[in-house]
Nucleic acid binder design. Sequence first.
DNA 1: CGGGCCTTTGACTGGTTTCAACTTCTGTGG
DNA 2: CCACAGAAGTTGAAACCAGTCAAAGGCCCG
Lengths: 189, 189
Amino acid sequence: MVQALLNHVNRFVSLNTDEQHLLLDHLSVRHVNKKEHILVAGAICTANYFVLNGCFRMYFIKESGQEQIVQFGLNNWWISDLTSLESGKPSGFYIQAIEDANVAVLTKQNQELLFSSMPKAERYFRLVMQKAYAASLMRLQYLFDLSAEERYHHFNTAYPEFVQRVPQYMLASYLGFTPEVLSKIRAKK
Amino acid sequence: MVQALLNHVNRFVSLNTDEQHLLLDHLSVRHVNKKEHILVAGAICTANYFVLNGCFRMYFIKESGQEQIVQFGLNNWWISDLTSLESGKPSGFYIQAIEDANVAVLTKQNQELLFSSMPKAERYFRLVMQKAYAASLMRLQYLFDLSAEERYHHFNTAYPEFVQRVPQYMLASYLGFTPEVLSKIRAKK
DNA sequence: CGGGCCTTTGACTGGTTTCAACTTCTGTGG
DNA sequence: CCACAGAAGTTGAAACCAGTCAAAGGCCCG
């Protein structure tokens, strides 16, 4: 199962067999049930999670009391609250499994150990962070440039299989509008 | 002048004198006039820029034809279009000096050389990317959670000196609304 | 000193939210 | 395996925040 992670790492840096073992020695695999949280607001985030299979959502509670989804965590994505992880302060986010899932867990401590014994790991994570940052900017672009309806259609054509997979109200939240709006957009045709 | 960069690097990783020289060998300093662009849409982004002094804005042109500011680049921030830099494809962004400025230029090529000769540099950039990513998520949070007026007040109390420094229409763009809205918010009291 | 850019102000418009009622789906226990 | 309760999705009406447009005033820079 962790093979998915090795494949992902090898897309960015190439590891020999020893290095692969070294990496795996710093990880554990954890099963997460649907609706189970691996992080709740107020807790301190202690690890990075790599999604082996299943699907997660990361969200926070708005002042209005509504949940706002910040991002989804799918296969081959790392998910975590880096702010809390780095600072050691309580997180403002929740991370919850939308489906039964398996994650590779890399604790902060193990991550540091890994970095000092294998500089390639540092490179890998630099590239992952860079990609995540670029994706986040892209998301901002869509929010600024497109209307609710355009955002939905864009997302729907970019990730048609994913749209089937999550409840509509979560998709609406992620796209930045209400479930009612999504329902009306869909009714249009 | 590049001392600012050395200080910044030393906040994340500690460099000895040799390493500092090695780093500087891979950089050049460039003066940028107010209103000058260091990147325009359609061009390929070839370098990372570290702002030594002055101020930049990174923006794109919306479908409506309006400029949308994605981020500001102030002292001690790296600014670049990582997507274009990484992929070698044309950028969709503009990066322009708002004030006369000086930047340290790290070309993609030099960055790779630096990484291979100094693993600490990789660590430094991982941390910088991580911080930038976290900041971008924070920005998303504010956009989702706060009204236009709340966003302005929040920004105004967080960075009062900066608000004085940039034209209102740029601030409005960054915060995600029109100059008229900002004007009306300010008129309220 | 003049021209153009920035800011202000007001009226109007419209996309999105909110609220509420109703229907459909889903999963859990009897 | 069915029944029922709660969750999710739909629909329509009313309210509102923010955008657009237009015109006027202020200010900076050449």
